[in-house]
Each structure stands twice: as structure tokens, then as C-alpha cells.
């Protein structure tokens, strides 16, 4: 029972990271039909933000690791958002609805960004100092829950709430949903799809940046930190249904749990294999994902 609850907790915290990574992916894929393989490097960019704040400008923050970490959350959002926006403006905006082309191009970008990180920060992994108030742990029914992981779960819950409120109540959010649901109809209704794409990309990339800041609480970071999450995040997007928030949430936690339990019962690599088999089996029954709707164009 106790190990079950322990794995449940690990699955929950893994699922919440996957969720925040996958949300950005599903928005950009659902809306623009582009596959951004460099999304993982936006996580990486976010992860290096608290590192830079702590090591390079640590003096300005009085050497306070906790303050630097908190400041990194909005700054990581902005840095990754801006990086994503540059990618969107320079490359992806020219490749709307060409998923395979974007897959290849962004794979190249992803490798370049990883190399850039190694040039800037060195080839070996670095540590971000966790705030002291996150170093404790809770024990409930014998399950050990580190504060850092609880913090991540709470952070993701807040972010998902904010994103969902943004989508349903803000004019910019409504425009995003409209473009996602029918791009041509949005254009002929006077919505600038280019501008909406930019908003979407900034938001999705920014979320990856925050995820990057969050994963520094779990372990050391390096140029590969994002690559470790990206495949699972793509699986979440596929299982959840493109551009769907509800499906993405269910799929993220489902895959997080599956990951945690299968790795516990077997080994890490066998666990991954089980995960893939489960996803493939699932797609036999629901090829469009958990939740799907038709996105229709007007010109076919």
C-alpha cells in the first residue's frame, strides 16, 4: 500500500511536469500544424535561468538562492517565450501546416541550441540551489513527499488555472481558440492569424520555460535536460488529442502514473517500452486521442 501511494505521488509530480510541457506543444501543433522538436530546448533555456541568476547575478540578489529561484519563474517564462517567438517568426511562421518540414527544421534547431548551451555553460551538468524552504518533506500515511515536488504540483495547478482562465475569458484567449478551431474562418472574420500565432507560441514556449525552472528542483541540469521530457510530452499530446486542454490533462497524469508504476515494477528501459506499447494500443481504439474535434478549413 505504501509503495503504491509512493508511486502514485511520483506519477502525479511527473505528470504535472509533462502537462505543462505538453500544453505548449498541443497549442502550437493544434493551431499551426507545426511540430516543434525544439520545445525541449525551451525547457532547457528556462532551466538555466535560475542557474544564471544564482551564479552570475547572485550578488545583486544578496546571494539568496530562494529569491533567485522565485524570480526565475517569471523570467524563465519570458526568456523561453521570447526564444520561442523568435523561432516562430523566423522559421515556423513560413511553414504553417507542414508538420514534417517543421519536424526536421526544429530538430536541427534543437541540436544547435543544445550546442549553444554547452558552449555557454560547459558540457557537464550544473546544480541549481533549491530554496531552503523547499528542502523539507511531508510524511502522510508513511509516504514521503518532498516539498519541492509538492511545490511543482501546486505550481502546475496554478498555471493550468491561469491558462484556462486566459483562454476562456480574455479576448486574446478567445482568438487563440478561434484560430485553433478554424484557421480560415478566423482569417476571413478579420483575425490576424499571424498575430494570434505569435501569442500562442509565446505562451506555449513560456510554459516550457517555467517547466524548465521547476525541473531544476528535481535534479542537475545540462544541455539534455529538455530532451528527456520531450518524447513523453509528445506522447501526451497524441493521446490527449490535439489542441485539447482537458484531454491533455488526463493524458499527462495517465502517462505520468504509467511511467512511475512501470518503472517501479520493471526497469527504466522496460518501463519505457511498456509505455510505448500502451500508447500504441490506446491509439488503436482512439486514433484521434482522448478528446478530439474536427478542425475544418474552408479550402479543404
Amino acid at each position: 500500500m505504501q509503495t503504491f501511494l509512493e508511486q502514485l505521488f511520483i506519477g502525479l509530480s511527473l505528470g504535472s511536469i509533462l502537462l505543462i510541457v505538453a500544453l505548449g506543444l498541443t497549442f502550437t501543433f493544434g493551431q499551426m500544424g507545426v511540430i516543434n522538436m525544439a520545445h525541449g530546448e525551451l525547457i532547457m533555456a528556462g532551466a538555466y535561468v535560475p542557474y544564471v541568476l544564482q551564479t552570475k547575478v547572485g550578488g545583486a540578489l544578496g546571494g539568496r538562492a530562494g529569491l533567485a529561484f522565485l524570480a526565475a519563474l517569471p523570467i524563465g517564462f519570458a526568456v523561453a517565450g521570447a526564444l520561442g517567438l523568435v523561432m516562430e517568426r523566423t522559421v515556423l511562421a513560413r511553414m504553417v501546416d507542414r508538420p514534417l518540414d517543421t519536424l526536421l527544421v526544429t530538430f536541427g534547431i534543437s541540436l544547435m541550441l543544445q550546442q549553444a548551451a554547452r558552449d555557454l555553460f560547459g558540457a557537464s551538468n550544473v546544480e541549481v540551489v533549491a530554496p531552503s524552504w523547499l528542502s523539507g518533506r511531508w510524511e502522510l500515511l508513511g509516504v514521503v513527499m518532498p516539498h519541492s515536488r509538492l511545490f511543482i504540483i501546486a505550481l502546475v495547478a496554478v498555471l493550468v488555472g491561469l491558462v484556462s482562465a486566459f483562454l476562456s475569458t480574455r479576448p486574446e484567449g478567445r482568438r487563440m481558440r478561434a484560430v485553433m478551431q478554424n484557421r480560415d474562418l478566423a482569417a476571413i472574420s478579420g483575425l490576424s492569424t499571424r498575430r494570434v500565432d505569435a501569442t500562442t507560441f509565446f505562451l506555449g514556449s513560456g510554459l516550457a520555460g517555467v517547466a524548465g525552472v521547476a525541473v531544476t528542483l528535481i535534479g542537475s541540469i545540462g544541455s539534455q535536460v529538455g530532451a528527456g521530457y520531450i518524447i513523453d510530452a509528445f506522447l501526451v499530446v497524441i493521446v490527449g488529442g490535439l489542441g485539447k486542454m482537458r484531454g491533455t490533462i488526463i493524458a499527462a497524469f495517465g502517462l505520468g502514473m504509467l511511467n512511475a508504476f512501470s518503472e517501479y515494477w520493471t526497469s527504466a528501459s522496460l518501463g519505457k517500452a511498456i509505455l510505448f506499447i500502451a500508447v500504441i494500443a490506446f491509439l488503436q481504439f482512439r486514433p484521434n486521442g482522448l478528446v478530439s474535434f474536427q478542425t475544418r478549413g474552408l479550402t479543404g
Binding site: R174, A178, Q181, N182, D184, L185, A186, I188, F293, L298
Partner: peptide
């Protein structure tokens, strides 16, 4: 006003 069901379905 395009042909067919020209609305945003989830709005």
C-alpha cells in the same frame, strides 16, 4: 459567409 457549417464549433 462560407458554405456549410461556418462557425467556431467549441465557442
Amino acid at each position: 459567409v462560407p458554405q456549410g457549417h461556418a462557425v467556431f464549433p467549441q465557442l
